[in-house]
């Protein structure tokens, strides 16, 4: 299969992630959608790397996976600390800061 198909799939995944972030209101679901965006980028990296015959693109994916894991660890900790205060992770109800 040619590169275009892989890039189309990756663009589709990325769009699903962006739309999810914009329309879902649960902080954890939003977070999952952000992970989807990162993985869409990973798919693009791997596909392009194979097309170019350049292994560095596949190495980037490892870096991105590491970053994503760190982000999940920190993100869930912060979401838990918000939950302890408010008993909800709905971003519309977490609204004591506005103006």
């Amino acid at each position: 299969m040619s590169l275009e198909w892989y890039l189309a799939l990756s663009a589709l995944l990325f769009t699903v992630g962006v739309i999810g972030v914009l329309i879902r209101r649960n902080a954890i679901i939003i977070f999952m959608c952000i992970e989807l965006m990162l993985n869409a980028a990973n798919l693009a990296f791997v596909a392009i790397s194979r097309e170019l015959g350049d292994p560095s693109g596949q190495v980037f994916v490892f870096f991105v996976m590491t970053v994503a894991a760190a982000e999940v660890a920190i993100g869930l900790a912060i979401i838990v600390s918000v939950f302890k205060h408010r008993e909800t992770v709905n971003v519309d109800e977490v609204d004591s800061l506005k103006g």
Partner: peptide, 18 residues
């Protein structure tokens, strides 16, 4: 408010990183 600031920063910052 501090936790809330952390969560807002995290969600939008990670979105931007994507």
């Amino acid at each position: 408010v501090s936790s809330e600031a952390g969560m807002k920063y995290l969600l939008l910052g990670a979105f931007a990183s994507g």
